[in-house]
């Protein structure tokens, strides 16, 4: 592992936390104030009675909005913009949705298994018409398990950066440069967890999430291609261009 001073780790942790807070889309206070606002039964039914393709499009728009914040987050991480453009794109293509899934736990209410979506808190039944119950259930389960770790915003920020800077993504041109950045981020995360007197097992649990996140994202890709096979024109004409670039 690279030799990094404590000062450097502190500095990186501060930079990543600040970047996260500046780009987190919703402040914790906003989200907490809305938890009592869950969709009423007739509103749930309204989502359920939308045509499948309309609901898909709405979700694609929401995912794209969230991803734009993740792109901003990446740009503010020290060292990210110093990577070659190919690698910036490779990392965002592979990791931006993973960070959206991580961020989902901030907007998740474990008490009633709902997530902030389209202005209120929504249970998994809201997404029924999408026809991908497995993916939705897995995303909710993932958010729930992330919540059970009770990470602070700083820890969440560092974990998000650690995921974004994954050096094992295919097609990286300067793999070792990414590797060094990721290692430094991991050290900063470790340092932060120690400082917060969290047990060693938290880091192990977080590292285990890497494969869960990859599974979630590949399931999203599979679900999208199944949808696209039936509705190619809808995707072509109505899905956000950034979404198509990332997942096309």
């Amino acid at each position: 592992s690279p030799t990094v001073s404590m000062d450097e780790l502190e500095h990186l942790a501060q930079n990543i936390s600040k970047s996260h807070m500046e780009t987190c889309q919703y402040l914790q206070e906003e989200l907490q104030q809305s938890t009592w606002q869950t969709f009423l039964q007739d509103e749930v039914e309204c989502y359920q009675s939308k045509p499948k393709e309309v609901m898909w499009q709405l979700c694609a728009v929401k995912i794209t909005e969230a991803i734009q914040y993740v792109v901003e987050f990446a740009k503010r991480i020290d060292g990210f913009m110093e990577l070659c453009q190919n690698d910036q794109i490779v990392l965002l293509k592979a990791g931006s949705l993973e960070v959206v899934f991580i961020r989902m736990c901030r907007a998740f209410d474990t008490q009633n298994n709902t997530v902030y979506f389209d202005g209120k808190y929504a249970g998994p039944e809201v997404f029924k018409v999408l026809g991908c119950d497995d993916l939705i259930t897995s995303a909710y389960d993932f958010a729930k398990s992330m919540c059970s770790l009770h990470l602070s915003e700083d820890e969440l920020a560092l974990f998000s950066a650690f995921i974004l800077l994954s050096s094992d993504r295919s097609w990286l041109q300067e793999k070792s440069k990414v590797e060094k950045l990721q290692q430094k981020t991991q050290l900063a995360l470790q340092h932060m967890l120690q400082k917060h007197q969290r047990g060693e097992e938290i880091l192990t649990k977080l590292i285990c999430k890497v494969s869960t996140l990859r599974g979630l994202c590949s399931r999203h890709t599979e679900t999208l291609s199944a949808f696209r096979a039936v509705y190619p024109d809808i995707v072509r004409a109505h899905f956000p261009p950034l979404y198509k670039e990332l997942f096309g």
Partner: peptide, 16 residues
């Protein structure tokens, strides 16, 4: 580059 036009653009926009 053409394939990731929007991502390129987002990366090039200065952070606000």
């Amino acid at each position: 580059k053409e394939k990731h036009k929007i991502l390129h653009q987002l990366l090039q926009n200065s952070t606000s």
